[in-house]
Design a protein around this nucleic acid. Structure first.
Ligand SMILES: [Zn+2]
Ligand SMILES: [Zn+2]
Ligand SMILES: [Zn+2]
Ligand SMILES: [Zn+2]
Lengths: 141, 141
DNA sequence: CTTGAACCTCTAGTTGCTAGAGCTCCTATC
DNA sequence: GATAGGAGCTCTAGCAACTAGAGGTTCAAG
């Protein structure tokens, strides 16, 4: 059985984050020592590693909750898991597209600026009106 | 002079968002009608359009605050503005790189999955351990 | 047996808004 | 001029996914 600190060290998830995951029900309530400190078995390490890795791949905690509950039912079809991953892939692709548009706009305004005064600054000018933009870039970045 | 609703309609920024920008000092306190309702001059439209466009390009409100105060000093060097935009470009490029790594990992796990049961699902397996990943993908997405 | 690191709970802060309650005001129609 | 209802007002709370701090307890090394 590991203390929360050891669990944190072996998984790379910070102590308060582990407690937070327990609080929101991503991790089951930990066992406690006589002095009320959390104790974890190896199983918790795996579950936490799963969460961390999924987070690193950009999944939301809600998606992860769903994926965890699926992984607890090995005989079920994996269709639901694949739907979640496919949706995530869609988000990622979409975001890349939008960020590439932003990159172009930022590069354009920076190369146009001749490093003079604010009144001549193409960066400030570009921010002031969208007319010269090549992309629509609406919605969240 | 425009009501907050008209200002919202002409700029595409929602009414509560305009009030929020005023609250945090991005917009100056609006004049008020006899009945205490906000009234805006054309200048406010430009300022708000600047904020909105900068947000669309991914700048933080703190950066925008800085950019706005620079744009109020036309005789100054624009170096500071260019620094902010360059930094923003850096963020964007970095994020794109990380998202492209995520895209690859997600595509890899999805193409490997044979659509069977959870116990054979390559998506769940890939989330369970990072060993087979091609990228480190640490840090925030 | 003492010391200090690690643990506990609870609250509040972060970013950039958004939603709601409960009220007042403005304007259009009759 | 009365009235209906849309738009405005303030204030509080909530979202995601944590992070930081206060103030107190427990554990483990020496
Ligand atoms: Zn410039
Ligand atoms: Zn634009
Ligand atoms: Zn699968
Ligand atoms: Zn990985």
């Amino acid at each position: 059985m590991l203390s929360i600190g050891k669990l944190s060290a072996t998984t790379g998830v910070k102590v308060p984050t582990i407690r937070y995951y327990e609080e929101i029900g991503l991790l089951p309530e930990a066992e406690r020592s006589a002095g009320n400190q959390r104790l974890y078995a190896t199983k918790a390490q795996e579950r936490l590693a799963f969460i961390r890795h999924s987070r690193e791949l950009g999944f939301s905690l809600d998606d992860i909750r769903e994926l965890l509950s699926l992984s607890d039912r090995p005989d079920m079809s994996c269709a639901a898991a694949d739907v979640i991953a496919t949706r995530q892939l869609g988000f990622v692709k979409d975001r890349i597209t939008r960020l590439q548009a932003l990159q172009q706009e930022l590069e354009r305004m920076l190369t146009q600026c001749a490093q003079g005064t604010i009144s001549d600054c193409k960066v400030i000018e570009a921010l002031s009106n969208h007319e010269n933009c090549l992309h629509p870039h609406h919605g969240e970045v």
